[in-house]
Simulated assay, not measured.
Amino acid sequence: MTKKGLFVSFEGIDGSGKSTQARRLADSLTARGYQTVLTREPGGSAGAEEIRALVLQGDPDRWSAETELLLFTAARRDHLERTIRPALAAGQIVICDRFADSTRMYQGLSRGDLRGAVDQLHELMIGQEPDITALIDMDPAAGLARAKSRQTVEERFEDFGVTLQEKMRAGFLALAQEFPDRIHVIDGNRPEGEVAQDVLAAVDSCLP
C-alpha cells in the first residue's frame, strides 16, 4: 500500500463483539503482510484516552447528550490528527473500534433528536468517514449481558439498560440503509470464527 491507506471501522451495540472482531481482522491482515493500526474510540490518542475516562465512567446522568457530543467530537478530532490521518498517509490500514456512526446513534438518537447537530459538528470538525464499516448486529439482551459480564469501570452506557440497546440496534440498522455502500451488516449471533470470515470477506473487496 504505497499511495493510500484504508480506513475500516467497526460498529454495533455494546457487547456485540466488535472489539474482538477488530482484533481478529488486524491479526489476519498483518499475517498477510499489511501494515495495520488497531485503535478505538473514544480514545486512540493520549488526549482522547483522557476524555474516554470522562465519558465512559460514572453515573449514567453524568453528562447531557449535548455535552457528550462535544466531548466525543473533541476526542475524535485529537484521534484523527494524531493517529488516523498519519497512518492513512503512510499507506497503512486503520482498524477502528467505533467512529462517528456511534456518535450519530448514542448522542444523536439516544436521548433526543440531535442527529442534525451531530452531522453538522462532524462536517465542521472531522470531515472524515471510514472507507468501509462492519456493523456487527447482535441481539440487544444477549449483547448487554455479555457487556455487563466484563465487570469493568467503563459501564456508563450499559447502565442505561436494554431499552437503550434496543433503540441503538434499530438505529444502526437504519444507518446501514442510509449508507449501504459503506456499512456492511454482519450477523453477530454466530460463532466468532464465522463472523470473522464474513468481516474479512467484506474488507477484502476494498483491499488493493
Rank of each mutant, 00 (worst) to 15 (best):
residue 108 G to H: 07
residue 16 S to N: 06
residue 73 T to A: 14
residue 96 C to K: 02
residue 126 I to S: 11
residue 98 R to K: 11
residue 37 V to L: 15
residue 51 I to T: 06
residue 71 L to Y: 05
residue 74 A to M: 12
residue 25 L to M: 13
residue 101 D to S: 14
residue 128 Q to T: 15
residue 66 E to M: 02
residue 62 R to K: 15
residue 35 Q to N: 10
residue 92 Q to K: 15
residue 54 L to P: 01
residue 114 L to K: 00
residue 52 R to V: 01
residue 129 E to D: 15
residue 53 A to M: 04
residue 63 W to R: 02
residue 59 D to A: 13
residue 102 S to E: 10
residue 74 A to V: 06
residue 64 S to M: 08
residue 56 L to Y: 08
residue 90 A to R: 14
residue 135 L to D: 03
residue 66 E to W: 02
residue 128 Q to A: 15
residue 32 R to C: 07
residue 98 R to S: 14
residue 80 L to D: 07
residue 13 I to E: 04
residue 58 G to T: 01
residue 76 R to Y: 05
residue 89 A to W: 04
residue 118 V to R: 03
residue 104 R to C: 13
residue 87 A to G: 09
residue 8 V to H: 04
residue 35 Q to K: 13
residue 54 L to S: 09
residue 124 L to P: 02
residue 114 L to W: 03
residue 111 R to H: 15
residue 79 H to P: 12
residue 79 H to K: 06
residue 118 V to L: 06
residue 112 G to L: 05
residue 88 L to H: 05
residue 121 L to Y: 02
residue 40 R to W: 04
residue 120 Q to K: 11
residue 91 G to Y: 10
residue 9 S to K: 02
residue 41 E to M: 05
residue 130 P to Y: 07
residue 38 L to N: 12
residue 129 E to Q: 11
residue 23 R to M: 14
residue 136 I to E: 06
residue 33 G to V: 02
residue 47 G to Q: 10
residue 101 D to P: 07
residue 94 V to C: 10
residue 107 Q to Y: 13
residue 80 L to P: 09
residue 20 T to A: 15
residue 15 G to I: 01
residue 53 A to W: 07
residue 104 R to P: 00
residue 18 K to N: 09
residue 94 V to E: 06
residue 137 D to E: 12
residue 120 Q to H: 10
residue 136 I to V: 15
residue 68 E to P: 05
residue 44 G to M: 01
residue 54 L to F: 09
residue 25 L to Q: 07
residue 105 M to P: 00
residue 33 G to L: 05
residue 135 L to S: 03
residue 74 A to H: 10
residue 51 I to N: 12
residue 70 L to R: 06
residue 124 L to R: 14
residue 18 K to D: 09
residue 79 H to E: 11
residue 24 R to I: 13
residue 135 L to P: 05
residue 99 F to Q: 08
residue 74 A to C: 14
